[in-house]
Design a protein around this nucleic acid. Structure first.
Length: 470
RNA sequence: GCGGCUAUAGCAUAAUGGUUAGUGCACUUGGUUGUGGUCCAAGCUAUGAGGGUUCGAUUCCCUCUAGCCGCCCCA
């Protein structure tokens, strides 16, 4: 970097640090309070690597979702990870924790307030407006999968970067839309082998909710003395939340509390009843949960949550996903009033549930042939031979990085392949190759051109057509 | 954001206020020249970071960081 200054300062002037290191000073490095306490690079708190060993399980989930999205004619959309902070402030609700303390908000270099998305429904609605999707046949059915960010306290199965898949349906207010979304969610779990039930509630329109809330608050005010500090705070800030309080005393009080279902207007009630009818018709295991509320402001009418069926306690991790109707969202963002409904699933929780249930991905297709090489000439031939085998559908492994035959056979042994091909100087000159049976140790020298067909014949008992899996 | 517990190598673990921090798995190399599975040998890699007490700390104390658990919240 110092090169851009005058070539040589004839005097003994030393190039001042400041000018010499513009790159490193661009961002203030303040590591006195955070990280930087090891020679090893450190992960940011709450962030993690999803390691190769875990990918099988993740793929199980990703594949199931992809398959079903396709089957139900949902179109994939990839939404940006960074959005204007304001998008979330307007939609999620100012009082919500997500917005208030969990969002990664910062000012970008052009001095705009931006945020790492804490969820994607708002982005989907934004995209719906931006691309004039209201001019497409309704409903517009979109799905997405990707990382979300919330600066939350990390715990097992809870990270600051976490993955969600979401399904959103815009433009139709029919109860059947809500119902089918529930069906899709349940189908995903069914395909994965997870026993999940759905909890459903309706929180009506914002008007009837307002009336209900007044009643609810009034009710709990009478019993204020029995409430915990947390619940008192909820009563102030977000009274609906008191419905899913875990305090015993509060739960008891709830039994006498006004129920939101009684406060729904006729239309809301009818909508909800129809959703339930459909769900029943589909024989979906559901529970009416009058205390189910969701954390984000944009919901209205139907809300639901997918919960592990065999989960005993109401562990905070039991909910694998949830969603509901959000008829007001598009309008909040300045679009034409558009009914919409959707749900999102938390991938790490699903993966965790798979683990807990001992559900494993099919084994990756094991190589059945190992190619061992000695010397450069053999490597050259081997690289090509490798392709021939691959093209004829025989999975071949190699350890081109190793030179000693011994080491390569060791590797072959570890992989448990039945056959190893050995190609050395001599064989290259002769146009032959050694086929070694790993079990017996028997070897034969064959014409290299026939290697593929000979190996194929030997492998007949070994299933070659096992489905490959990434 | 609040509270509790924890922190030894890639992983799993042992030990200690005092000379080389032990073991297993894994990894690398070797046990002659181009042959694996067993075996043997060697090597590699650790006390999360900073500070304090002490003649001396990995061990005791404090702070920070991270992980786990509970709360909050949520997926």
């Amino acid at each position: 970097m110092p090169f851009k200054k005058k070539p040589v300062a004839p005097k003994k002037v030393v190039v001042p640090e400041k000018e010499a290191t513009p790159l490193t000073t661009a961002a203030p490095v303040t590591d006195e309070s955070e990280g930087g306490n090891s020679k090893n690079p450190e992960l940011l708190r709450g962030f993690r690597d999803i390691m190769p060993e875990e990918q099988g399980k993740w793929n199980l989930v990703r594949d199931a979702v992809r398959r079903l999205a396709d089957a139900y004619s949902f179109d994939r959309i990839d939404l940006p990870i960074l959005e204007r902070a304001d998008l979330f402030l307007r939609t999620l609700g100012k009082g919500t924790d997500v917005v208030e303390k969990e969002m990664y908000v910062f000012t970008d270099p052009s001095n705009r307030s931006v945020a790492l998305r804490p969820e994607a429904t708002a982005s989907a609605a934004r995209a719906y407006i931006n691309h004039g999707m209201l001019d497409r046949p309704q409903p517009v059915k979109l799905w997405y999968m990707g990382p979300m960010f919330r600066h939350d306290r990390p715990q097992a199965g809870r990270y600051r970067q976490f993955y969600q898949v979401g399904f959103e349906s815009f433009g139709v207010d029919e109860p059947i839309v809500d119902a089918q979304l529930i069906v899709i969610g349940m189908q995903i779990f069914k395909d994965l082998g997870l026993d999940v039930k759905v909890q459903i509630n309706s929180i009506g329109t914002s008007e009837c909710r307002k009336a209900y809330l007044a009643e609810l608050v009034a009710y709990f005010r009478q019993h204020r003395a029995k409430l915990s500090e947390d619940d008192k705070r909820r009563l102030q800030k977000n009274p609906l939340r008191i419905l899913d309080s875990k305090e015993e005393a509060t739960k008891e009080l709830l039994e006498g509390a006004p129920q939101i279902l009684d406060w729904l207007d006729e239309k809301s009630k009818e909508h909800f009843m129809k959703v339930l009818e459909f769900v029943e018709e589909m024989e979906i295991p559901y529970q009416l949960n009058p205390y189910l509320v969701r954390g984000l402001d944009y919901y209205s009418h139907t809300v639901f949550e997918f919960v592990l069926a065999d989960d005993t306690g109401d562990s905070s991790q039991a909910a694998l996903g949830g969603g509901g109707r959000y008829d007001g969202l598009v309008e909040i963002l300045g679009g034409r009033p558009t009914p919409a409904c959707g749900f999102a699933l938390g991938l790490e929780r699903i993966v965790k549930a798979l683990e807990a249930k001992g559900i494993n991905p099919p084994e990756r297709r094991q190589p059945v042939v190992f190619f061992a090489q000695l010397g450069d000439a053999a490597r050259r031939v081997g690289l090509k031979l490798f392709e021939e085998f691959r093209q004829s559908g025989i999975p071949v492994a190699e350890a081109f990085g190793k030179n000693a035959l011994k080491a390569q056979l060791e590797a072959a042994n570890k992989l448990g392949v039945p056959i190893t091909l050995i190609l050395g100087q001599k064989e290259v000159l002769d146009g032959t190759i050694i086929v070694r049976d790993m079990e017996s140790g028997a070897q034969e020298i064959v014409d290299v051109k026939k290697a593929v067909s000979i190996v194929q014949r030997k492998l007949v008992p070994v299933a070659l057509d096992k489905p490959a899996q990434i």
